[in-house]
Write a protein that binds this DNA or RNA. Structure first.
Length: 270
DNA sequence: GGCCAGGTGAAAC
DNA sequence: GTTTCACATGGC
């Protein structure tokens, strides 16, 4: 299936900017990922996106194609540094990812590096998710909270998540039993959502903020990790103490978008 | 070998 | 409240 290309999407930038872990570049230049129970392949060709998915609505939603990025970019472009970052990361789109998967993925991300984060997530899916065949290959869904909640830390040993195994199980149990109602976070303010997510062991401000931004569409949230601290320090001479105020004042409601552009830009050049 | 990686929890001040 | 340290694992 073809969908008319929104002229403001770039698959490389979108899948490489650090928000997601399960999209991989194929030899032919297309990207394959597992989203929910679907294996999706996407390719850019001329001014169109070619995909195996027959639901245009599904992709519009996941890629947030109905959002007018030119509008928010126009606002952010007033900042000279951001203008460069936006040019560099043109076509980044913040995906609407599944909350539980995003929560567990960013729990795994703590004190870890990206290649290993991806390996652990793939291994977890391979061991505990459902198999799907696509194009002669087997793929695996991200395991449900229900399935993970019945595992022990020993069961998780094969995925090599280290001390995070207990955190993963805690998240699965709190979600599957309803101690935490993830759906309710959609309706919450960022502060309420952060408070709710932080009830899970292994979830602090940074992990919670990534989940709020990448799964719950809290676009004002600006996840604060070592990289973005380094980047703001370098590009704006903002130190740790001035960080929060600077971010609120300069990026406001669009903090999440600004964070993604700056993160992607800064990681390449700093 | 030691240090680091998209932090966090727990135990000190 | 703020600071300090351990934490599984793997790559360099």
């Amino acid at each position: 299936m073809l969908i008319q290309k929104n002229d403001d999407i770039n698959l490389l930038h979108t899948f490489d900017c650090g928000q997601c872990f399960r999209w991989n570049l194929e030899e032919n230049g297309s990207y394959t990922g597992v989203v929910g129970d679907k294996v999706i392949n996407l390719a850019e060709k001329d001014n169109q996106i070619i995909t195996n998915i027959d639901s245009e609505n599904f992709l519009n939603e996941y890629l947030d194609l109905n959002r007018d990025y030119s509008k928010l970019k126009n606002k952010l472009n007033k900042d000279i540094v951001l203008k460069k970052a936006i040019l560099y990361g043109s076509g980044i789109r913040i995906l609407k990812q599944e909350p539980f998967e995003t929560l567990v993925s960013f729990i795994i991300s703590a004190n870890n590096n990206i290649p290993r984060i991806k390996k652990i997530i793939e291994s977890m899916s391979y061991n505990f998710g459902d198999a799907i065949e696509y194009n002669g290959r087997m793929y695996h869904t991200f395991p449900s909270a229900q399935v993970l909640s019945n595992l022990t830390e020993d069961d998780l040993a094969p995925i090599k998540s280290g001390y995070r195994a207990g955190y993963i199980i805690d998240a699965a149990q709190k979600v599957s039993t309803g101690v935490i109602d993830l759906d309710s976070v959609f309706k919450m303010s960022p502060d309420e959502g952060r408070y709710t997510l932080k009830q899970v062991k292994g979830v602090g401000d940074k992990v919670a903020d990534c989940v709020l931004l990448f799964a719950f569409q809290k676009y004002s949230v600006f996840p604060k990790d070592v990289w973005i601290k380094r980047i703001l320090n370098n590009l704006y001479s903002v130190d740790d103490k001035a960080f929060d105020e600077f971010v609120n004042k300069n990026f406001g409601d669009l903090g999440g978008f600004a964070q993604q552009y700056l993160f992607y830009y800064g990681r390449e050049f700093l």
